[in-house]
Computed example of a mutant assay.
Amino acid sequence: MSATNCNKIRGNHVPIYERPRERMLAYGSAALADAELLAILLRTGTEEESAYQLAQRLLFHFEDLRGLSEATQEELTALRGIGPVKAAELRAAFELGKRLSSKGKFQQKAIRLPRDVAEIMIPEMRDLKQEHFVCLFLNTKNRIIGKQTIFVGSLDASIVHPREVFKEAIKRSSAAVICLHNHPSGDPTPSREDIEVTRTLRQAGEVVGISVLDHVIIGDDRYISLKEAGYM
């Protein structure tokens, strides 16, 4: 018997707390626990458990919602009850949440200090498994008007070419650029390559008339501003 048919048979015998759709319609999404919201995304469980019980098992396996949001396709599909489609739908939902959060923060305030950048970008970059070099493009009021991942991989001056950075800046009519990258190790201490890349980009910015305001390195809930550290 399929999980869908099994769920249909159980029907009204399922306790109300295991029927999150009904609770959401009655009380609104804010009243639902993480497992209930997750169950709505999952839609169906397995022959042995409801969607709600499957959601509880996922949260327990990955420890919490954040751990689940960081799970790879392979990690998700390794669990009973999660096939490729369910895994992809979950990952898509979490990615939309991250993007919405980032865009909302972009519109809130002008960038004045390195911690303003860190508050916006740490949630997005702290858990990346590879180094990502990202540029934030600012207007004359220091508000973010765009964001672009320039490359993924180990930072090297020969890879982070000023042409790619300033091509995107010019396309957006940017007044300034803030560069960021993450250290998957969690330690944001700048390397020699980080410092060389920063100086190269700053010099190129002076030539094209677009200021490189800072280079912020993201670690595990920590950051280092190369400007504050005296490397710019």
Score class of each variant (00 low, 15 high):
Lys98Thr: 14
Ser102Pro: 05
Ala92Trp: 14
Glu48Asp: 10
Pro20Gln: 06
Leu180Ala: 12
Asn5Thr: 11
His132Gly: 07
Ser101Met: 09
Leu65Phe: 04
Ala229Glu: 03
Gly153Trp: 00
Ile159Leu: 05
Val117Asn: 02
Gln108Ala: 12
Phe60Glu: 14
Ser158Phe: 10
Arg91Gly: 05
Ile178Ser: 03
Arg66Val: 08
His183Tyr: 07
Met232Ser: 02
Arg10Ser: 05
Ala110Gln: 07
Glu168Met: 14
Arg19Glu: 03
Leu25Ala: 10
Asn7Lys: 01
Val160Asp: 02
Val197Asn: 00
Gly219Arg: 02
Glu22Met: 12
Asp220Val: 04
Val14Leu: 08
Pro162Ile: 08
Glu22Pro: 13
Glu63Asp: 14
Val14Asn: 00
Asp156Asn: 10
Tyr27Leu: 12
Asn182Ala: 10
Arg163Pro: 07
Asn7Cys: 08
Tyr27Val: 06
Ser154His: 03
Arg43Trp: 13
Ile217Val: 12
Ala31Tyr: 05
Ser225Asn: 09
Ser173Phe: 13
Val208Asp: 12
Arg143His: 02
Lys141Pro: 03
Ser154Tyr: 08
Val212Gln: 01
Asp187Glu: 15
Thr149Phe: 01
Arg126Val: 05
Leu76Phe: 04
Pro184Leu: 07
Cys179Lys: 02
Glu70Gly: 08
Ser174Ala: 15
Lys8His: 12
Glu48His: 04
Pro184Val: 00
Ser174His: 02
Glu89Phe: 11
Thr140Ala: 14
Gly186Lys: 07
Glu193Tyr: 07
Leu38Ser: 04
Glu131Phe: 12
Glu47Ala: 00
Val207Leu: 14
Ile122Gln: 15
